[in-house]
Amino acid sequence: MKLMTCPVNGPRLISEFVYAGELRPAPDPATSDDDTWADYVFNRSGVAGIKHEWWCHSPSGVWFIAERDTATDVIMRTFLYRAPGAAE
């Protein structure tokens, strides 16, 4: 079984983790037009490649970002959201 490294709890079985989609910047609701907003809420990019994703270590509730290549399923690194020094 695949392993994933939680930034707080270290390497754990992938079955302990929950995926919550790609980290995507939200457009400003106050200024975006309907089309921009609809694109944000309804569309997701399925293009394979390196993505930043939300993952949660479910038993401990730690949310973090995983940099993962969705073409090869290789996890490059994991880090806490907005942690000092971590690029988003």
Partner: peptide, 12 residues
């Protein structure tokens, strides 16, 4: 409950 945690993290 899990999603609440993500939102709190995201919203800082």
């Amino acid at each position: 409950f899990r999603e609440f945690g993500r939102l709190a993290t995201w919203w800082g």
